[in-house]
Nucleic acid binder design. Structure first.
Length: 110
DNA sequence: CCTGTGACATAAG
DNA sequence: CCTTATGCCACAG
């Protein structure tokens, strides 16, 4: 099993910094971590995010703003509900006004 | 060192 | 819009 440390912890750390009502992409996180092409690793790391308490994995979507990982949540619409309760509009599993809600760790954290 | 894995990204049909 | 295929990377065993 993946020993949750290093890269994974970094992913979780960034995820925890995502403000409410904001979202970011796997690629953006990966890039911020210095592994721009490791977006898959980010997703994989998120696979264990549920083991963490303060990791808002629902705020992490793919570049198109689509809730690709919703199937990994408890229900089928839990992810969407969480986002909508933060003020984000979602239609057909896709975040609306993504640019408006997008939170880029590269810019926010520098 | 090699293999498997993955909630991505991109390209192609 | 859909499915495949490929590349990419980090890490466990």
């Amino acid at each position: 099993m993946a020993n949750n440390e290093n890269f994974f912890e970094r992913v979780y750390a960034v995820a925890r910094l995502i403000p409410e009502g904001k979202v970011t992409s796997y690629g953006a996180i990966a890039k911020y971590l210095g592994a721009a092409r490791s977006a898959r690793m980010v997703g994989w790391a998120m696979n264990g995010s549920h083991l963490k308490e303060d990791v808002p994995a629902h705020r992490v979507v793919n570049k198109a703003g689509i809730l690709t990982g919703k199937h990994h949540f408890d229900g089928t619409n839990l992810m969407q509900q969480l986002l909508e309760s933060e003020g984000i509009t979602i239609v057909d599993n896709q975040i609306q006004n993504l640019e408006k809600h997008f939170w880029d760790p590269l810019k926010a954290l520098k």
